Amino acid sequence: MDRRTLLRAGVAGGAAAFSGSLWAGAALADPAQPGESPYGPLQSADALGIQLPVGFASRVVARSRQSVTGTAYTWHDAPDGGACFAAGAGWIYVSNSEITPGGGASAIRFDADGSIASAYQILSGTRQNCAGGATPWETWLSCEEVRRGYVYETYPQGGATAIRRDAMGRFKHEAAACDPDRQVIYLTEDESDGCLYRFRPMTWGDLSAGTLEVLVAGTATSGPVAWAPVPDPDGWPRYTRDQVSGAKRFNGGEGCWYADGTCWFTTKGDNRVWAYDAVNERIDLAYDDSLVSGTAPLTGVDNITGTPGGDLYVAEDGGNMEINIITPDEVVAPFLRITGQSWSEICGPAFSPDGTRFYFSSQRGTSGWSSGGITYEVRGPFR
């Protein structure tokens, strides 16, 4: 998608502060504010044009339309959402392709020492696969960001054909996040008046059948919420977001990440990071660029991931091409910045299973075209 230059009005309403990976009960405070990164300031750009804190280093692992190093596999255009999966002593990074027609998803398998062992396709013949999400049973949900798009369940290890999961609804899918505690999957919708959904499989681990629900709430940015079934998940002739009265609207749903009772999700139209407290069934703002003191460090809010320690990493679509960290003590600060690629966006942030390597893509690279995508790895003293 194109860089955003949206102008917005201010917002009203309070929001809860988070503590660690969990919300601090009913203790209300402002959303995250700018502060010093736990990793210190960004240094001068390295040879790849990446600004990182002291002790961190970057490398390129794949470029669109070029063979992945050490393999004969050609990396896809417009790399987007991604995730990592354990694979023996090594791991796999999967990445979607946000192009139409074509779409699909690819995988890179790494050995224990970080060298690339192989690369291959895990999904093809789809449309504009944007973000997605990993499941606890080690599959990748690849989401089509088109009107009445589908979710495809894919197999990062290879050797199995991807399956279209019609029961998860047909809408402009963006990201997915699994909540094993409640055995549901949260789904964002990339529409200016989109919704937040959750899918309840009839059997956890089997996505062939279940109930699609939409979040119902008022217009406030914080408070209690409820869920209501979507009568027709197929979305025809009436879009899913228009089927339930009182469904809460979100301005361009993007990334989605679940941890410890909280589903964090982002909205690009208003540069917000939201938190759905699944334990107490309420929503709150974790970040809003119009509510910070001074200059907002995080704009163009897009993909999101997290760590077991409670840190969130939020990628920018446009902005100044940064990935920002939001810490459990409510500080937001740049973690890295890509220089010389102002017509691109950052996608697919994900940590290796051991937390020592961090992957992400610049969707259009230095060229500004989908054919110029670059996928990176960062190593360093992650906390």
Rank of each mutant, 00 (worst) to 15 (best):
A24C: 08
I99V: 08
P237F: 03
G169R: 01
L48W: 08
G20Y: 09
E213V: 00
A89W: 02
I325A: 01
A177C: 11
S64F: 04
R337K: 14
D111I: 05
M321Y: 03
V230H: 01
Q33F: 05
D234A: 10
W204T: 10
V146L: 02
D206P: 12
M1D: 12
T375A: 12
A78F: 01
P231E: 07
S58F: 09
R147P: 11
P231Y: 02
W137V: 09
N303D: 11
R282K: 14
P180K: 07
G300A: 07
W91T: 03
A315C: 12
Q183Y: 05
S64H: 07
V214H: 12
I99L: 10
F56I: 14
G261W: 02
S95L: 05
Q363M: 04
A177R: 14
R364W: 02
Y155S: 09
P297V: 07
D329R: 14
F335Y: 12
D179W: 11
T74M: 12
Y313H: 00
A15I: 03
R198H: 13
F56H: 15
G194D: 01
D270P: 15
R238C: 08
G210A: 07
G25R: 09
D277C: 12
G49Q: 10
V151S: 00
L7R: 06
L141V: 07
G365K: 06
F358L: 11
F382Y: 14
E377C: 09
G210V: 03
R65L: 08
A333F: 01
S192F: 06
I185K: 01
L285C: 14
A78H: 00
A15D: 05
P31H: 07
M168R: 12
T126R: 01
D30I: 11
G218D: 03
E98G: 12
L123P: 01
Q183V: 15
A12T: 07
P334Y: 08
W204I: 12
G169V: 03
E281D: 03
L187E: 02
E316H: 08
A9M: 11
D113R: 10
T203G: 13
D113E: 04
Y150E: 15
W23H: 15
A220W: 03
A175W: 03
T266A: 15
G210H: 02
G373A: 07
S106K: 10
D181I: 14
G102W: 04
G252V: 06
Q33K: 10
D2N: 05
D166I: 00
Y186R: 10
G90Y: 02
F171H: 10
F199R: 08
N96M: 06
G81P: 00
D166A: 11
R200W: 07
S208N: 14
E145R: 00
T262S: 08
S293T: 14
S58Q: 14
D77A: 06
D206C: 09
D2A: 13
L42K: 00
S19E: 15
S371C: 05
M202N: 15
T267M: 08
L22P: 06
Y197V: 05
A62I: 06
G25P: 14
G340Y: 06
R357E: 07
F351Y: 11
K172R: 14
Q363D: 08
Q128T: 03
S118Q: 09
G81R: 00
P308F: 04
R4I: 05
S293Q: 04
L7D: 15
M1N: 07
V214A: 15
A259E: 07
G269E: 09
L48D: 01
V94M: 01
Q243I: 00
F110L: 06
T135H: 10
